[in-house]
C-alpha cells in the first residue's frame, strides 16, 4: 500500500510540474465562482441563456461558432431552451442553402439542424473586415486558451488606459490580461449594453460571467454528463477495488506469505 502513495506522489510531481510551467507566465486572473467546477459541477441555465444572448447580440457580429448547431440550444446539459424557443431562434437567422433545382443558392430561415450562422464567409473575409486580425472562432475558445474560463472572464474586463511609455498603433488596445497586453479587439462590454430577457442587471461583470459560462458549455457540451458519469464510475471502481482487495487477502491467506 505504501508504494501506492509513492506512486501518487510521483504522479502529483509530474502533473504539478506541468501546471507550474503553465502558471509561470500568468498574471493573476480575476476570480469568480463557476457553477460548473467541482465533482458535481453543473451549468447555471440562466447564465447559459443570458450568455447566449450576449454572444448573439455582441460577439456574433465578428466571432463565429462553427461547431455549434441551433439544436444544441435545446439539448440536455446546455442552455435548455425549449424546442419551440430553439426553433424560433433558428428561424430568426437566414441560412444559405442550395443549390436548388436551377443550380442556385438561396436563403431560407434556419432549422434546428443548421450550424450557427457565421458572420463572415471565410477567414480572409474576417481578416479583411477586422484590420488583418482574425476574430477567432469561439466554439472551443475556452479550451484553446491557457487560462481557460478565468482568462476569458478577466480579459473581457481587462481594458485599461495604457501605462505611460506604451504606444499603441491604430486599432490596437491595451488589455491587462492579454498575452503581450496588446489586443486588436476593442472593449465591447459596457454596463446595460444588453437588455436581459430575465431582467438580470447587465453589468460588465455579469455579462462577462454569463458569456464565459456560455463559451465553456460551447467548448464542453457534455460537461454535465461527464461529471455525473465520472462520479458513478469512480464510486464503482472504489467499491470493486475494496471487494477485490478482500478477495485478494482471502486468496493469499492460503499461503503464509502476506500480500
Amino acid at each position: 500500500m505504501k508504494n501506492f502513495f509513492r506512486i501518487l506522489i510521483i504522479l502529483t510531481i509530474v502533473i504539478g510540474s506541468q501546471t507550474n510551467t503553465n502558471a509561470a507566465e500568468k498574471v493573476e486572473y480575476l476570480k469568480t465562482d463557476w457553477s460548473f467546477k467541482g465533482l458535481f459541477g453543473k451549468f447555471d441555465r440562466g447564465a447559459l441563456q443570458r450568455g447566449y444572448q450576449v454572444y448573439t447580440e455582441v460577439c456574433s457580429s465578428c466571432h463565429s461558432m462553427k461547431y455549434l448547431s441551433y439544436r444544441n440550444l435545446a439539448e440536455k446539459g446546455g442552455p435548455e431552451f425549449t424546442e419551440a424557443q430553439a426553433k424560433a431562434i433558428a428561424a430568426s437567422f437566414e441560412v444559405i442553402d442550395g443549390p436548388n433545382a436551377d443550380g442556385e443558392m438561396f436563403t431560407r430561415p434556419g432549422k434546428l439542424s443548421d450550424k450557427f450562422v457565421m458572420p463572415y464567409e471565410n477567414v480572409k473575409a474576417a481578416q479583411a473586415a477586422n484590420g488583418g486580425a482574425y476574430p477567432p472562432d469561439m466554439s472551443v475558445l475556452v479550451k484553446a486558451r491557457g487560462g481557460g474560463v478565468d482568462y476569458i472572464y478577466s480579459l473581457l474586463q481587462g481594458y485599461e488606459d495604457p501605462p505611460a511609455g506604451i504606444v499603441l498603433d491604430e486599432g490596437v488596445y491595451y488589455n491587462k490580461y492579454m498575452y503581450g497586453n496588446k489586443i486588436k479587439m476593442a472593449n465591447q462590454l459596457s454596463n446595460g449594453l444588453v437588455e436581459y430577457a430575465d431582467g438580470t442587471n447587465s453589468t460588465v461583470e455579469q455579462m462577462s460571467k454569463d458569456v464565459t459560462t456560455f463559451l465553456m458549455w460551447a467548448a464542453e457540451p457534455h460537461l454535465e454528463s461527464r461529471h455525473q458519469m465520472g462520479f458513478k464510475a469512480i464510486l464503482y471502481l472504489i467499491i470493486l477495488t475494496i471487494l477485490v482487495y478482500f478477495s485478494m487477502k482471502r486468496i493469499w491467506s492460503r499461503i503464509e506469505t502476506e500480500v
Binding site: 504522479l11 461527464r226 461529471h227 465520472g230 462520479f231 464510475a233 469512480i234 471502481l237 472504489i238
Partner: peptide, 11 residues
C-alpha cells in the same frame, strides 16, 4: 490505477 485514470478522464 484505473481510479487515477478515471479521475483524469472525467475531471
Amino acid at each position: 490505477f484505473m481510479i487515477v485514470f478515471a479521475f483524469f478522464v472525467f475531471y
